[in-house]
Amino acid sequence: MNEFIFFINIVVISGAVIGSIYALGAIGVTLIFGILRFAHFAHADMMTLGTFLVLVLTALFPAVGPAIGLPTAFVMMPLAMAATAVIAIGIDKAFYKPLRENNVKPVVMVMASVGVTLMLQGLIRFFAGTGSQSLFVDDRKAIFRIDLPFESASRAIVVTEPQILLFLFLAVAVVSLHLFLNKSRLGKAMRAMSDNPDLARVSGINTNTVVGVTWIIAGALACAAGTLLSLDVTLKPDLSFMILLPIFAAAIVGGVGHPYGALAGGFVVGFAETLAVFNWAFLLRPLEQALPWLDLPNNLAFVPTEYKITIPFFILVAILIWRPTGIFKGKVI
């Protein structure tokens, strides 16, 4: 029984947590991919930037959270999301829009986003240093232990407050995004532009507004993803390329330009990672007791933790070989 609880704690919960983070990032990446048609390499550093803004706000107003009963950083998150959205629009105006108007090839846009990501990295590291920081400035992380009503279960299922907030936020974000894309004029215009940008222009759809909305959503979600990840672990300013790869993998697995696909892709990549580094020996140990001739090695993980980065890469390669359009058919290849 304890082995099973261990499995839930290590695989189910952790997988869902990291999957949710990837999903939040991948939704933004996939929207940008769909509307602006380039892989946005600056997304990971946009996440870090948003988180850094939360850190600053949290340090400025540390007493707000305890008054409401939530982590201060989570209370500050909406403000930082708005700020990140504004910054995202500003970055677009300054660096992407001029190139777009010159009708450059998509790959030049990719490089421009690399330029932006390096600038963001420089700024973040200059002001925040490279060490890890905690978003809990004046409060503590609440941890919930859920005991199972079984004789043999001496361990408890452990969930932290940030994890619950993450799941709730993801649910709210996905439902709102769904309603926005399917019910509102602007949301439908976004889908239209991602479907056929030339026809959107010919129809009189204001493409600048649509691009702006895309950056607002992507920027806000990136900030939320970074903050919720940092609340769960710590804020690492140099995450950048390490988290970019799984997010891209998630977006491509889900089918580029397909927000629900990105959601599914995020969980696929998240669970694949956790399952691959999970030490299966823990789960199989009861079997060893039952079958005395069985001799299990101590470590039965598929991939050592140091090589976790290979998992999203292999998922990416596999999907590019077998189904480049993604599991939900994306449109742009």
Partner: peptide, 14 residues
């Protein structure tokens, strides 16, 4: 036409 949008959504986009 916007292939992934419904007929009515196409008209709304117009």
């Amino acid at each position: 036409v916007f292939t992934s949008l419904s007929v009515e959504e196409n008209l709304e986009m117009g």
